[in-house]
Amino acid sequence: MTTPARRRLMRDFKRLQEDPPAGVSGAPSDNNIMLWNAVIFGPHDTPFEDGTFKLTIEFTEEYPNKPPTVRFISKMFHPNVYADGSICLDILQNRWSPTYDVSAILTSIQSLLHDPNPNSPANYEAAQLYRETRREYEKKVAAIVQESWNDDDDEDDDEGEEEENNILNLMELDNVITNLMLPLFQSLLDEPNPNSPANNLAAKLYQENRREYEKKVKVIVEESWIFIGEV
């Protein structure tokens, strides 16, 4: 069943694809339009530059009347980000306006990386270093920037964390596919290369029986709609 929240999220997604703001990207997770994965690239001329920070955005049926819950999944070191990745940002709390969409949320968080607010600290150490020992702050941030690239191939000996990492890997993969590599994949869909087949049947049909190939593709096209209408 489509609800106002889901309808609006589809609109948000469409707009994010058609008019993507610089340095942020996001998409609904594979089977749940109420849970999004997003990436914020560290803004230029900040210690966060070149970092690829992953986040989750969790919506309720009250969206857009109520803000979603946004959380960094990548490790973060910032005066306004809590240890669990949640963010202390007024527009996500008492200054939320229903006119904000996902695009506005992500760009606001991006500018928070640019301009931390050390007066309402969520991470006291980061706030203090930011105010008093900027060099030390930048060093700590540089470390999490590095870590942000490694999220996927981090091997951890702790078992609990390892499991968590696997989830991260999946999320990462999802993000990379939906956000970053989409243009590449799009052209691949346009022009398959049957000489290096990953799916032998598809390659064979593509070469020998185009009609059958198109029929099979049509089926998965229809399947791809299911998550949109009925989650």
């Binding site: 819950t69 809590y82 240890a83 669990d84 949640s86 202390c88 709390q93 969520a122 991470n123 006291y124």
Partner: peptide, 10 residues
């Protein structure tokens, strides 16, 4: 101090 209490309030 490292916990986000806003979420509990919300």
């Amino acid at each position: 101090p490292s916990k986000n209490y806003d979420e509990d309030t919300l």
